[in-house]
Design a protein around this nucleic acid. Structure first.
Lengths: 161, 161
DNA sequence: GCCTAGTATCTCGCTCAGCGAGAGAATACG
DNA sequence: CGTATTCTCTCGCTGAGCGAGATACTAGGC
């Protein structure tokens, strides 16, 4: 495929739509982060922490850093920032006292909902214009695109790890 | 809406799918950037420059910085990096000699295609599993979600500019 | 033509996120 | 026990991005 073909393929519009949606989500995240004095990494960490809290999965600095692709020094600094903002609390694990468990403060949950709540609400409202069958199609489509992207990434990673 | 309701609403799965797709695209971008010694900002700039080049729209440092939300100092540093990497060239505008026009080098186009080519190919292949009608539905869906997100962002920006 | 205001870019000094290396503290396992 | 391993944190450094201001050029009134 080259640039000329790509502009003519109608399916290419869909690729563009996907990218546009991604950009829009990122911009919303950046907007939120900047407004609350958070850095992009802090927001990603907050999302990961809230996900883990909802699943009642304990989080350690090590796991968090791994997920965000930070090294241990960067992770410590990140947790320091979140702790200073009152979003998270460090607690030594009683079972394995080398470990630190991160517990999210209620304030972090509130902050998360103040961000995701309106966005999710708007998305759900916009979905009202679609039939259940159409939403099902959209879900399958998104799943297929995510898988295709993940495969591309995995292939790329394999070629030059 | 609260956290309990949200987990039960089946449409919420779609919201999650959207987020998962966004995360996957971002990870692919980060992977590519890291591999080529680019920073996330550099990749965003490269995308913006390639878009502009395809549309035959001239780009100045000012416009680029505005799009990436960098101030003038950061923009200068960014263009310095891109120039050092041989991806872009500065040229004084003959008409308005205060201006600098950024022209992308062939190398940048190649680099862009080496990233987007495989990803786009994988997406197009994955689309083969859908009928034209389904793809149309997916396109409308993505457009609706993008609009809803953009509206949320605009509303948020209005409340506290 | 000339002076002033406005615009585009760049320079300087600084802050702070993240990295590499390694120290400290606790556990696991021979 | 004592050695290896696993977590986390500290230290010093690099470099992206910011604020303030310098520089170079254009536009418009007189």
């Amino acid at each position: 495929m080259n640039a000329e073909e790509s502009r003519q393929d109608p399916r290419l519009r869909l690729v563009h739509r996907l990218r546009a949606a991604t950009v829009e989500f990122d911009l919303l995240g950046a907007e939120f982060a900047a407004r609350h004095g958070l850095h992009p990494t802090d927001l990603r960490a907050l999302i990961a922490l809230l996900d883990a809290a909802r699943a009642e999965r304990p989080v350690t600095p090590g796991r968090l850093g791994e997920q965000l692709r930070l090294n241990s020094a960067g992770t410590t600094a990140l947790v320091d920032r979140l702790e200073r903002l009152g979003l998270v609390r460090r607690e030594r694990d009683a079972a394995d006292r080398r470990r630190v468990l991160l517990t999210v403060e209620p304030r972090a949950v509130d902050l998360g909902w103040s961000f995701f709540g309106p966005a999710i609400g708007a998305l759900l409202t916009a979905m009202d214009a679609f039939t259940p069958a159409e939403l099902d199609t959209a879900e399958r489509f998104l799943a297929a695109m995510t898988t295709a992207t993940a495969d591309t990434r995995a292939t790329a990673a394999r070629q030059q790890p």
